[in-house]
Design a protein around this nucleic acid. Structure first.
Length: 607
RNA sequence: GCCGACAUAGCUCAGUUGGUAGAGCAACGCUUUCGUAAAGCGUGGGUCAGCGGUUCGAAUCCGCUUGUCGGCUCCA
């Protein structure tokens, strides 16, 4: 039975201490921050003053750790009164531990919710007032810690230090940056090997690698970082997804709209984006003394369409949708592959409705999202975040608090009624309202948000839009911002990695490849006629009639992960039958020998 | 933006302590006319990311810029 991360906690946390012990021996001036257990391993934050670590230092640390492990040091628990602990941190010259202890004394265990409780030497469930903290000692290294730990360093199992990076003290970019050393750890070397093997395989699925190998998208230094260029093959993916979204949108009575890619700065001043996201706006100067902004969002434009007419309560809900590119000047360090780009295509929708329609509208969107992801076999690979406001600081948001209360409550109800098992995330809301975010993981385990449903009581008010209710007086509608696949970039990243480039037939950039056996005129003509027939059936077909061996041409098709290929030679011409070669993962494959027209018919059936 | 690493042919990568650049694949040409994952021979291709500096001499050392990668922070 596979062990859970919980079972590995003592092992991994002990290794964090062993690593700290090793680092303390190598760099005696080291000041320690926190060193918690994470998925598959652990890390420790360290301040080495002027010394900077690089990956080249990892083997040295690993060797020292091996020494510590060999010494069979016992992990011994002890307790101190909080004031004794503060004195200890001072005498040991550990300013970060001192800060934690002082905060612990002042705030009690509320701090344990901010910082991994293991590193505080108290149980998270402890009384709010903390008077005692626990320590663990191995060899000559003592650390504030809740535990539990292994008995001895000898039980440390198999580990590997994987990376080193900068990390802000207590996760705040205004604080000094420490150095974080990451490791992975498992009870046995077999499990570690297995993990490393899986990691290497995941790297093979990385969308950046496959994007190049399968010729789907490129970047250009001249165009700029974070601005993806889709090749003809990649554009097939975009178009196929757009069509799928259009189909599902039609089914649920969405109304397509279309807007230009910029708007006056004034528009974003009213929406609140100009102030809140000033650094991320691309500004465009007009010759005529006006300043424009490349749209970072679409809602203000869509709101203007709503505002163009007097609306009645009978008109609602109005569900505007659009697939369009938007632009954000992301910080250089955040840009990477298709995960975060500076121009990205969203499937953006804004539903204008009455308060009494919110639940039904949100529920409809949940159904669309579910249907879309189920179709691709991705439903279930996700978790849902009920992103609510940070109660301690309302100045980060627009609108009024009683509307926020209402909105948060309704989203929670929708989540419950649809069994989304949403996790409540404090402080994760958008500036105008709470949201339900659907989170997925990329091949390397990094999380990314795709689908989203966001309630907004604030923006309608800022723009002063209204509808006439049944009593003839004006009321302010609610906006539900929604995306099904989020951004096409992220979504394409996800499906490339999910399918490892072996797209289902309906998404495959090239569905069928016809390979000529040789260069005989009759063979070439047959291949070309067959391609015409396939095109007539709307099959994405390509011809390989190059002067290469059949083996090589098959290999080329396989490397491009083309679902079906057919070799055409004298035999096929004589018999009037083809033997399709199907990509190995395809289910319901067509592979027996049959007439080409029949093959096309069968192919259409599996689409 | 911050910490760290990196940038050599279209792609993947060699290139010793500083002495004017190589391979495989791809491309192109010729030969071959082939039966389901690489036929043979040949040819072309590089301002060593860009700019500046040190040096008799820089792919190699230093600085800046651009870009990429691993994290941190942020993400309407």
């Amino acid at each position: 039975m596979p062990k859970t991360d919980k079972d590995h906690e003592a092992l991994r946390h002990s290794l964090a201490h062993i690593m700290a012990t090793a680092i303390k021996h190598l760099w005696p001036e080291a000041k320690f921050g926190v060193g918690p257990v994470i998925e598959d391993g652990f890390y420790y934050d360290i301040d080495l003053g002027k010394t900077t670590l690089s990956e080249d230092d990892l083997p040295k640390i690993e060797a020292k750790m091996a020494e510590v492990i060999k010494q069979d040091q016992q992990f011994e628990r002890s307790e101190m009164l909080i004031d004794e602990a503060i004195a200890w941190a001072k005498s040991e010259n550990q300013p970060y531990k001192l800060e934690l202890l002082n905060d612990l004394k002042r705030q009690g265990t509320t701090l344990a919710r901010e910082i991994d409780a293991t590193d505080l030497g108290v149980a998270a469930s402890a009384q709010s007032k903390v008077d005692k903290v626990s320590f663990y000692k191995n060899g000559d290294f003592t650390d504030l810690c809740r535990g539990p730990h292994l008995k001895s360093t000898k039980e440390a199992g198999a580990f590997k230090l994987t990376k080193v990076s900068g990390a802000y003290w207590r996760g705040n970019e205004k604080n000094p940056q420490m150095q974080r050393v990451y490791g992975v750890a498992f009870p046995t070397s077999e499990e570690l090997e297995e993990y490393l093997k899986n990691f290497a395989e995941a790297k093979e699925r990385d969308h950046r690698k496959l994007g190049q190998e399968l010729d789907l998208f490129v970047f250009s230094d001249l165009v700029g970082a974070g601005l993806p260029l889709y090749t003809p093959r990649g554009t097939v993916l975009i178009d196929a997804l757009k069509q799928a979204l259009k189909d599902i949108g039609d089914k649920y009575d969405m109304l397509p709209v279309s807007i230009p890619h910029l708007g006056k700065l004034e528009l974003y001043k009213i929406s609140g984006h100009a102030e809140k996201f000033e650094d991320e706006l691309f500004k465009v100067k007009s010759h005529y003394n006006q300043e424009f902004v490349l749209k970072p969002v679409n809602c203000p434009h869509h709101i203007q369409i709503y505002a163009s007419q007097a609306r009645s309560y009978r008109d609602l809900p109005l569900r505007y949708v659009e697939q369009t590119m938007q632009y954000r000047d992301e910080k250089p360090g955040q840009i990477g592959g298709l995960q975060r780009t500076r121009g990205f295509t969203v499937d953006d929708g804004h539903t204008f409705c009455r308060v009494d329609q919110i639940k039904e509208e949100a529920a409809t969107i949940v159904n669309m999202i579910k249907e879309f992801y189920e179709q691709l076999g991705l439903w279930g690979d996700h978790w849902v975040s009920l992103s609510v406001r940070d109660k301690s600081d309302f100045s980060k948001y627009i609108g009024n608090e009683s509307d926020w209360d209402k909105a948060e409550k309704m989203l929670a109800e929708v989540s419950d009624e649809h069994q989304l098992k949403a996790k409540r995330m404090e402080g994760e809301a958008a500036l105008y309202g709470p949201k339900l975010d659907f989170m997925f993981k990329d091949a390397l385990g990094r999380e990314t948000q795709l689908a989203t449903i966001q309630l907004d009581f604030a923006m309608p008010e800022r723009f002063g839009i209204s509808y006439v209710n049944s009593e003839g007086s004006n009321e302010t509608p609610v906006i539900i911002h929604r995306a099904i696949l989020g951004s096409f970039e992220r979504f394409i990243m996800l499906i490339i990695e999910h399918f490892g480039g072996r797209f289902p037939l309906w998404l495959a950039p090239e569905q069928l490849r016809l390979i000529s056996l040789n260069q005989e005129p009759e063979v070439l003509k047959t291949v070309s006629d067959m391609a015409k027939m396939a095109k007539g059936q709307s099959i994405r077909v390509a011809i390989d009639d190059t002067n290469e061996s059949v083996g090589k041409k098959i290999r080329k098709a396989e490397l491009l992960k083309v679902p079906y290929s057919i070799v055409v030679g004298d035999q096929e011409i004589k018999e009037g039958k083809v033997k399709p070669r199907a990509r190995s993962d395809l289910s319901g494959t067509v592979s027996e020998s049959l007439g080409f027209e029949d093959f096309l018919k069968e192919l259409k059936k599996t689409l």
